[in-house]
Design a protein around this nucleic acid. Structure first.
Lengths: 129, 129, 129, 129
DNA sequence: GTGGTCTAGACCACG
DNA sequence: GTGGTCTAGACCACC
């Protein structure tokens, strides 16, 4: 999978990297059980420091998206059932995006069309087998 | 309108304030032409530094959501047609939220239901004239 | 409060520091609402790097023991009701300590006496008022 | 005796294995004089590297819990009288656990109840003779 | 002033 | 080989 980072963004690199990996898993480019590059490898590929990569991996581990095994390195976890916490976060973010869309003159139909379009690019792990 | 800030959040206060105002406009609590509290008043109400409020107002002005007049203070702008830039930002954020939702085991129907539910709380300004 | 770190220990410094602070709060040396030294100050006092202190503070924050406020720095949180997760961890650790004590020839009475003695040095926040 | 290891834990495998064996002896599943599986056998059973098992056995030997004889393999030692060093370690660990329990809102009675409950699962070797 | 991020490079523990 | 830790020093954002 291709990682693209914007060094001049005000979003921290470790967050950008975390988001790219989450999207990668969501889109099925990284499947459950598959290995991520080692910390050092990813650091070299992305041209960043290995501690930054390490921080990203630790966050993904804490979020339950990956496992870190002393022997095999980092691997993608199977899907976890959503906790209530995520639902609240999702609603809060969508509320803000809705407000912004509305202020930009976007109508509900178009907004929902984009929502659907974006979700369609994801590949739920259940339908793998 | 009520402003609630979380001082221990890692989201900067000026961003939290900006988001709350954007939501307030989107929901119709603040209508086009209406005045926002003065910088000092808002700072006092929210218990924060007036420089922070000033920063928020400047951002909202740069985003085209409010106008700042030396005599009348800050007022809400009428709806602007969406710029292409917003559309890209919206898609990027929805892509990430979709991935997270997908990884948490949420299905498309439920995701779209929440999207719609959130958008419904907004009140487009066009229908006021 | 006095921080003493063992640089030659195989317990990471950030864990040692975390443990010392937890004990300090438990013993009432640090009370709810009170401020911890700033990251830089603590780093200087303890003779360690500020990132190490920062890591400790982030962990304490994640565990719900302290809050980090952009303005006031780090402050001690009021007592939180225990989550089930802690109970399991407690049982697991006590099981191991019991086994070790048993193998060293320690009897139940002495073991429990030490348990009680140690707990007595703590000062539950409820009895403050 | 059953060995269960968590490969994604941050506790090293050799420590997990050491702890499981200590608990096994404490609980009487392994009695004084009894043999442990050979290094190779244990490694195969647990699905880990034999060097890891070897390390564990060396530690248990250094702690005085087992003896290693070139002919008989590893056998469980009879109970050793507690050294002062263990007592200090025990107090230090209980102090930390007490603090954490206290901060989680647990009362002394419940804490001591769990301490006793855990110790009761152990079977001192002295009563076997 | 504060905390947050990042780097380059080092060393160690683990398996 | 892997990840984990730590350092010293830098720069930035926030308030």
């Amino acid at each position: 999978m291709i990682i693209s980072l914007d060094m001049s963004s005000d979003t921290p690199i470790y967050v950008q990297l975390r988001n790219q990996i989450v999207k990668g898993i969501g889109k099925g480019e990284l499947k459950a059980g598959e290995s991520l590059p080692s910390v050092r490898q990813m650091a070299q590929d992305a041209g960043i420091n290995s501690m930054t990569v390490n921080k990203t991996y630790q966050i993904l581990k804490a979020e339950g998206f990956i496992e870190i095994d002393r022997r095999k390195g980092a691997t993608v976890c199977p899907v976890r059932q959503g906790e209530g916490a995520f639902r609240e976060k999702l609603e809060a973010e969508l509320e803000l995006l809705s407000a912004e869309a509305c202020l930009k003159g976007m109508h509900k139909d178009e907004f929902l069309r984009i929502c659907e379009e974006m979700f369609k690019t994801m590949h739920p792990a259940e339908s793998e087998g």
